[in-house]
Design a protein around this nucleic acid. Structure first.
Lengths: 232, 232
DNA sequence: CGATTGGTTGAATGAGTTCAACAAATGTGG
DNA sequence: CCACATTTGTTGAACTCATTCAACCAATCG
């Protein structure tokens, strides 16, 4: 018995059978959520944490000028508000893009998990640190890379993370993000995303099917994008 | 008895006299560090955490194309590697910009502080969450705001954080960052930073002394930059 | 089937970079 | 204390990358 959450945490900290069992139980209260459902709304408090067990979602901040910055993509195993539950308002909105299985965990459950199982506490720490690392990597990507490399880097990351949770073996990446979404991740317009995609296609770095991106030579793309696969 | 670290944590979690005492003791092993000293080097493990008690520092990542992204500025009370000590390699370099007083904390001390004092553990959590929030805010700033607002937003944040630790009461902000540094924070060139500074001066939003930025009307600047002072 | 959403392309515009030159400030050794 | 070198800031002109706005296409969905 395992699930995406346990598998993710185990990449950071080794968990005993008992620890794993506790985590499975803690994430047993699940619900299936439609695409385009808002799980958490920016500025509002949320009283439970969520664990994404299947599906795909992302987090974004809205600016008063109407612009939107997507600050994270969530794949199975990732959490929402695991750390700040009930303490403050969320600083971003979380919305599903696919049909998702979502487990809810109460504040009390989190507290007792951490208090009674030191390794689970460590795993939670690790997971939060990983999120921080991801944000730093995105910051460097948006701040310093030219647009084609920026997009290539994002594709590497999405592919890498989908592979890490066993969603794809090949270089094919099912894609639920629109070009507008890509733009709101990368800080460019949807029109420019389209043009950059064309460049990457012309360079034979990726091939775009209707609903998926196919990476023929991942090493080549990683090299092009200056992507290092340390994080996952 | 108190110090910048305790004052910072208390903004997030109320700490008992005893908790405060523990934290003071834990940060009593201090050293004075010259400007432009590297505290932590990207890619290398570090076996102690650091707390900045006075001075100023920043963290950056280097890309293989030679570009640099500054991912955080540290003011007194801020920590370096408090969470990932000895577990993994640092994902960024930390360098001082001023003469700094830096306390070192060992992994064991951190462990026992958290194990024996639940509120200290909570305060550490809060502090890490705050860092994450900051990164999200920077991401939105770099990704979605035009350069003038981007710089204005950064000035608001720096001023706000200096005020929060009692380094300035007025709207004057001692500035140790070069225009190159500003560029590496904001994802623009140093030349453009210079031009944007001029724009902000022309708009009478800031006034630049030799070594400081003077904000006459902070509300006006905050409004211009779409800055919300929630974080600190 | 029309209506809507998302992707594609072109032309004009604008924001930001590049490169180069110079000014101002700071530091250093004699 | 001066002369020189170095670093940081400033400005202009040409250029490039990305945006804007518009039109159109393709796919999907009632």
């Amino acid at each position: 018995m395992t699930n995406a959450f346990v598998r993710k945490l185990q990449r950071g900290v080794e968990l005993s059978e008992s620890d794993q069992q506790q985590l499975i139980e803690a994430t047993s209260r699940t619900q299936v959520v439609d695409p385009y459902t808002i799980l958490v709304r920016e500025g509002e408090p949320h009283h439970e944490a969520y664990v994404l067990l299947s599906g795909f979602a992302y987090c974004f901040k809205l600016l008063t000028n109407g612009e939107r910055q997507i600050v994270a993509c969530l794949v199975p195993g990732d959490t929402v508000g695991l750390y700040g539950v009930a303490t403050e308002n969320s600083d971003y909105t979380v919305v599903t893009l696919a049909t998702c299985t979502v487990a809810s965990i109460s504040r009390d459950t989190i507290d007792s998990l951490m208090a009674d199982h030191p390794n689970i506490g460590r795993a939670f720490w690790w997971s939060l640190l990983l999120e921080k690392s991801h944000l730093c990597a995105w910051l460097a990507n948006i701040g310093q890379r030219p647009a084609p490399q920026r997009l290539a880097h994002l594709i590497c990351e999405l592919l890498h993370r989908q592979q890490a949770v066993g969603l794809t073996r090949s270089g094919s990446l099912e894609i639920l993000l629109t070009q507008q979404d890509f733009g709101d991740i990368l800080g460019i317009t949807n029109v420019h995303v389209c043009r950059i995609f064309r460049q990457l296609r012309d360079l034979r770095l990726v091939h775009c099917d209707q609903k998926s991106i196919i990476v023929r030579d991942l090493d080549q793309l990683m090299n092009y994008a200056d992507y290092s696969s340390a994080l996952c």
